[in-house]
Amino acid sequence: MTIQEHRLRIPALQEKVKEACEFVSRLARAAGMNDDAIHRYYLAIEEICTNIIEHGYSQADYADQQPVIDLVCRQYPDRLSVTILDDAIPFNPLERAEPNPTTALEEREGGGWGIFFVKKYMDRVTYQYAEQRNQLTLEKRIR
């Protein structure tokens, strides 16, 4: 089985998130995904990278060095897998309580929808903490 692997490292800066989204979109298109699937991957990558920047890396002092986010994309014959790696403190976003779409307006707090959308848009989302890095893997079937 042939597996194609592509990697990208971006500085953990909001203005660089688009680069990560476009990187994955290009690979999704090359893998044969349709426009809706590419859109869903784009949104998922934006949500995850934004969470890492706003929550993960905001909790520590990285003044001496620019933290990074790595993306490893693997194209299998039937699916595309994207692993997003960061060096923030261990945090499994899949264990976070899900927001409830039926919550009344006044009780809505605004957060948590990003990972909720990711889970809806992807076929499989898995987390592991390995080699001192958070590793979240998003998988979607190609057809």
């Binding site: 934006e46 307006l105 957060g111 929808w113 959308f117």
Partner: peptide, 10 residues
């Protein structure tokens, strides 16, 4: 994305 939804809800 969810960032836009936050602004609408607020």
């Amino acid at each position: 994305s969810s960032a836009g939804l936050r602004e609408i809800v607020a």
